[in-house]
């Protein structure tokens, strides 16, 4: 199957700032693809280029295997940064305008308003909406034409906890219906919970790309302590599946491969070392992410 979206060497410069540097990646059908990076890493610039409002200085991209066009954008549901609506019009009128521009009927308007919890306020002018409601309406607008692809930029911005949960649920459900979703976020937890694939950006540079497990591999490590620390120190490099270790006082952090904690405990006991402490620690995604982005800064 051909890629939904391919980027080839996209670059964008704002004056002295290189917002995006030679970005290439592909999004396959059915992926929930996260663009992850801190603020100012080029996520929004990338989406702006992909949606025709920002001109790249270099590079090109294709949607649905063809050069980008207004027609291809009609097949994409989008929520970019801030919700943009006519404040004097009702939710229904605003969605009618979006559906008209996307050459779709109005038949899904009630449905998406229900999905986003705005149905009861559908005839109120947007100027009376709270920020959270506008954000929900923006999501409704992204869904109204039943698009093949959803592009969402920080979709949970400005939402309360219930709203965040609702929106994430809606995104997951949409993904389960086989839609391709591209989600930009600086919230690692959000990307981890929703996405199947991820690209990590920092200062416009692609740091890592692939399936979420490949990229944000949360390596487990064992924390070991023994009654006789020196005996343990001598044993650690010989543990089965040993990768590396760090000593911190009497405690050892050990990275191993293909062994369970019970295997290690049994092995140490057999070698005459009694463990007084044994604990598995998953490195959090946060740590992985920070290691990834900070590693690049010093490089």
């Amino acid at each position: 199957m051909s890629a939904i979206l391919s980027l080839h060497g996209l670059s964008k410069r704002y004056g002295k700032v290189q917002a995006l540097h030679n970005l290439s990646l592909e999004v396959q059908p059915g992926h929930i693809y996260g663009l992850l990076g801190p603020n100012g890493s080029g996520k929004t610039t990338t989406l702006g280029i992909l949606l025709g409002i920002t001109r790249p200085n270099q590079g090109h991209f294709t949607w649905f295997g063809a050069p980008p066009s207004a027609a291809s954008r009609q097949r994409i549901g989008t929520l970019l940064e801030t919700p943009n609506f006519y404040p004097y019009l009702s939710a229904v009128r605003n969605l009618e305008i979006v559906a008209t521009l996307k050459q779709r009927g109005y038949d899904r308007i009630d449905e998406v308003l229900r999905q986003t919890g705005l149905y009861d306020r559908r005839t109120s002018a947007i100027s009376t909406y709270s920020l959270g409601m506008r954000q929900r309406l923006a999501l409704a607008a992204a869904l109204v034409a039943d698009p093949d692809v959803l592009v969402l930029d920080e979709p949970t911005n400005g939402l309360d906890p219930q709203g965040i949960a609702d929106v994430r649920q809606l995104i997951r459900e949409t993904g389960q219906r086989g839609k391709t979703i591209i989600l930009a976020s600086h919230i690692l937890d959000e990307v981890e919970k929703i996405c199947t694939h991820v690209a990590v950006l920092k200062q416009g540079v692609l740091l890592a790309e692939g399936s979420i497990h490949e990229v944000l591999n949360p390596e487990p490590r064992l924390i070991l302590q023994a009654e006789n620390p020196e005996a343990l120190a001598a044993l650690v490099p010989h543990l089965p599946g040993y990768l590396r270790s760090e000593r911190n006082g009497e405690r050892f952090a050990v990275w191993i491969e293909g062994q369970t904690a019970a295997d290690i405990n049994r092995y140490c006991f057999a070698q005459g070392v009694t463990l007084s402490h044994l604990n598995i620690v998953q490195r959090s995604l946060e740590e992985t992410f920070l290691a990834l982005t900070q590693g690049e800064t010093h490089a």
Partner: peptide, 14 residues
């Protein structure tokens, strides 16, 4: 209202 930008995103050409 930033709707001109939104129209292009939604599928109008410039």
């Amino acid at each position: 209202f930033r709707t001109l930008r939104q129209h292009i995103i939604d599928g109008l050409s410039r």
